[in-house]
C-alpha cells in the first residue's frame, strides 16, 4: 500500500474467481488497483472491471446501502461492498462471495434458497381486520410503529446468513432475515397473520435451529438486530406451547 498527497493509493485486491465453464474450483486472483482514498470496495471493483479485467462478475445496483445486492466477504467479514470504505483497510484486501451460499460465478452467490425461505414466512401484511376503501386507512400509533420499526429496515442482503454458523452447518434453517421479517409483521398492529407464519417459523427448521450466536446482529448493515427478533419469537412460541398444552381453555 502506498499513499500519496493526491489522496490516492494502490490497493491490492485478492479476489476469489470461479468460472463454472472452465474452473473445477474457485481460486484467488491478485489485482493492483489504483484507488482514491475515499472510495469503497465496490468502487475498487468497478475500476477493476472497467479497466483491468472485464470478465469479473459481481452484483451491485444502488451504491448507497439500500438495495442489498453487493454483499460479499471482505477480509472474512460479511459486508456490503458499498459500505466497506477503503480507508478502513490496510494491506491486501481479500474479497470472496458470501459464505454459506453456493457460488454462481466469481463474487455472485446463488440466492435461491433465501428467496424460497423468504416466501415461506409470508413477509407482508395479512390484514387482521378487513376494511374497504370507504372504511379508510389502517391507523397506527407511534408506539405501535416502534414495536416493529427496526425489523422493517431489512434489505434482504443476506449478510446475516453468511455470518450465521448454524445456517452454514444446517442449510435447512430458515435463518435470521426471514424469521426477523416474519416477526416484523407479527408485531404489526394491523396484521393478523401470525398463526400462518408460526406454522413455518415455530418449527425445528425455524427458530429452534437458532442457538443465539448473535453473529447476525453483529454484521447487519441496517441494525435490524435479527438475533433479538429470533429470541423474541422463541419466547412467544414457548408461551404459545404452554398455553396450548396446559391451558387450552385460555383464549389466546
Amino acid at each position: 500500500m502506498t499513499e500519496n498527497r493526491m489522496g490516492t493509493r494502490q490497493v491490492e485486491l485478492e479476489v476469489l474467481r470461479y468460472n463454472p465453464e472452465t474452473d473445477q474450483e474457485p481460486k484467488f486472483q491478485r489485482f493492483t488497483v489504483p484507488c482514491v482514498n475515499e472510495w469503497c470496495v465496490l468502487d475498487a471493483l468497478n475500476y477493476l472491471k472497467d479497466n483491468l479485467d472485464s470478465t469479473l462478475s459481481y452484483r451491485w445496483s444502488c451504491h448507497m446501502q439500500v438495495c442489498g445486492s453487493c454483499g460479499m466477504m471482505i477480509n472474512g467479514e460479511p459486508k456490503l461492498a458499498c459500505k466497506a470504505m477503503l480507508r478502513d483497510y490496510a494491506g491486501v484486501i481479500r474479497v470472496e462471495p458470501l459464505s454459506h451460499f453456493p457460488i454462481e460465478r466469481d463474487l455472485v452467490s446463488v440466492a435461491d434458497d433465501f428467496m424460497a425461505k423468504l416466501k415461506r414466512v409470508k413477509p407482508y401484511l395479512i390484514p387482521g381486520e378487513k376494511r374497504t376503501l370507504a372504511d379508510g386507512e389502517y391507523k397506527q400509533t407511534p408506539a405501535q410503529l416502534e414495536r416493529y420499526k427496526k425489523y422493517a429496515m431489512c434489505i434482504n442482503c443476506m449478510l446475516c446468513y453468511a455470518a450465521c454458523p448454524e445456517y452454514g452447518l444446517t442449510p435447512k434453517f430458515i435463518g435470521p432475515a426471514a424469521i426477523s421479517l416474519a416477526h416484523r409483521y407479527n408485531q404489526d398492529s394491523r396484521d393478523g397473520g401470525r398463526d400462518e407464519r408460526q406454522e413455518e417459523i415455530a418449527t425445528s427448521e425455524g427458530v429452534w435451529e437458532c442457538t443465539f450466536v448473535g453473529a447476525c446482529s453483529d454484521v447487519c448493515p441496517k441494525h435490524v438486530d435479527p438475533a433479538s427478533a429470533l429470541q423474541q419469537v422463541k419466547v412467544a412460541s414457548t408461551v404459545d406451547w404452554y398455553l396450548e398444552h396446559f391451558m387450552s381453555w385460555v383464549k389466546k
Binding site: 470461479y18 463454472p20 474450483e25 474457485p26 472474512g76 459464505s99 454459506h100 453456493p102 457460488i103 454462481e104 446463488v110 454458523p165 452454514g168 452447518l169 450466536v213 448473535g214 453473529a215 453483529d218
Partner: peptide
Amino acid sequence: PYVREVPRTTWFFKHPRY
C-alpha cells in the same frame, strides 16, 4: 454452482466471534 462445505468440527476457528 460451486458449494463450499462448512467443516463440521473446526468451523469455530474461523472467526473470533465464533
